[in-house]
């Protein structure tokens, strides 16, 4: 029986890294969004800082999704 521990370890490590990065960035985006919505409810004005934070994070997540599509579709490689 042959078990490729290196490949399994790589898959585990890369998956943990990518997932944690994506979830962290997305969660920060959600926090920005929450700040915008909270500000809007409290004083009717938006929160430019929150909006910038949300925008930046979601753009980063969109890039990750685009990379995912690139990996899935063989024509792109």
């Amino acid at each position: 029986m042959h078990l490729d521990w290196t490949a399994l370890g790589q898959v585990t490590a890369v998956s943990i890294g990518v997932t944690i990065a994506a979830v962290t960035v997305f969660a920060l985006g959600v926090l920005g969004l929450a700040r915008v919505e909270a500000a809007r409810e409290e004083n009717g004005a938006g929160s430019p800082l929150g909006l910038a934070q949300a925008g930046l994070c979601f753009v980063a997540c969109a890039a990750v999704v685009a990379y995912g599509i690139y990996l899935i579709v063989p024509q792109f490689r």
Binding site: D4, A7, L8, Q10, V11, V14, S15, V18, T19, A22, G68, L71, I72
Partner: peptide, 13 residues
């Protein structure tokens, strides 16, 4: 799920 499926497909496990 997405990252495990994609990394496993591309790292050969």
């Amino acid at each position: 799920s997405t990252s495990v499926i994609l990394t496993s497909a591309h790292l050969g496990f």
